[in-house]
């Protein structure tokens, strides 16, 4: 099932995310995904997240799909040139994977193979363009595909709280022109900034799913403020995490903050994308508390 069918039906769409392991045994990841079956509409599978080499996203998507869960195949441009990307995307179609999230990808120097060659033959925009060409029956070099062309629902990312915002909006515009069908955003902690962003973004009519990362600790919030692009956790949330150490440690503060953010962001967007970073077991409670399930 393509996510665009849900957006078109007017549903407020929910997605979560799992990251495959650094090893061949995928059972834990599958279990994490299964625990959210029927709670969210689809589950993203990350692609060598943070440039750390792991079990492949495509194979994990296939195994999750086998369990009756809708996967969103994340594809970055860091590790593959245009031949390998197109080949994997055709393979995804052959495995019945219908939703994709296309990203440029973190630089190799951020991960665990710092001496690797950073590929970036294509970028997020030219990759969207490439998939639209595959959908029209030809590859990027205009060679005709055999048989029926693949059909996908193509997603991309945007960073609504980035400063300056203008270059992000322009890149977003390029992605829309290239044919993107939905957006998932970087984690949002500032509803006012998100509302301002949506004011500018809503004219395109492309559905936007606001990104939620559960705050696990004060240290995590501070680390993200220092190091993670496009994320700013405001002081009042950091104070809230500091107030009751036990409650924060148990995850309850993070759950309450995430649920509150979802309630506040809902009027401005068409869905929520949760990035639990291992706290998948907290997702049902967050969604219940925010009134979405």
């Amino acid at each position: 099932m393509k996510l665009k069918e849900l957006f078109n039906s007017g549903k407020f769409v929910l997605t979560s995310e799992v990251g495959p392991p650094k090893g061949w045994n995928i059972d834990k990841t599958i279990h994490e995904a299964e625990s959210l079956k029927g709670i969210v509409d689809a589950i993203n599978v990350t692609d060598n997240q943070s440039s750390v080499m792991r079990f492949g996203s495509l194979a994990a998507c296939h195994l999750i799909k086998d369990k009756g869960i809708e996967p969103v195949f994340q594809v970055t441009c860091r590790d593959r040139n245009r031949l390998a990307l197109q080949s994997d995307i055709l393979s995804a179609a052959g495995l019945g994977i219908e939703n994709m999230l296309l990203l440029t990808g973190d630089h190799t120097t951020l991960g665990d193979h710092k001496d690797a060659k950073p590929v970036f033959d294509l970028d997020s925009v030219s990759l969207i363009h490439t998939i639209k060409k595959l959908e029209s029956g030809v590859d990027l070099a205009n060679n005709k595909l055999d048989g029926e062309p693949p059909k996908f629902c193509i997603g991309a990312v945007v960073s609504p709280c980035a400063e300056p915002l203008e270059p992000q909006l322009m890149k977003m515009d390029r992605k829309i022109k290239a044919g993107v069908e939905f957006f998932q955003t970087q984690a949002v902690y500032e509803t006012d900034k998100f509302a301002k962003f949506m004011e500018k973004a809503k004219n395109s009519g492309i559905p936007v799913m606001a990104g939620i990362v559960i705050l696990k600790s004060v240290g995590m919030a501070k680390f993200m403020n220092e190091n993670v692009a496009g994320i700013h956790v405001p002081d009042n949330l950091i104070e809230e995490l500091k107030k009751d150490k036990e409650k924060t440690k148990s995850g309850q503060t993070g759950i309450e903050i995430a649920a509150r953010l979802i309630k506040d962001l809902k009027p401005y967007c068409q869905g929520i994308h949760l990035m639990p970073l291992g706290w998948d077991d907290k997702v049902p409670q967050i969604l219940k508390l925010s009134g979405l399930i």
Partner: peptide, 20 residues
């Protein structure tokens, strides 16, 4: 650009500095 991107900024810059 550390990634030699041709179609605009990636999401990796923080305070005007590259993620690298």
């Amino acid at each position: 650009c550390s990634k030699s991107l041709l179609n605009g900024q990636c999401g990796g810059a923080k305070n005007g500095k590259c993620e690298v």
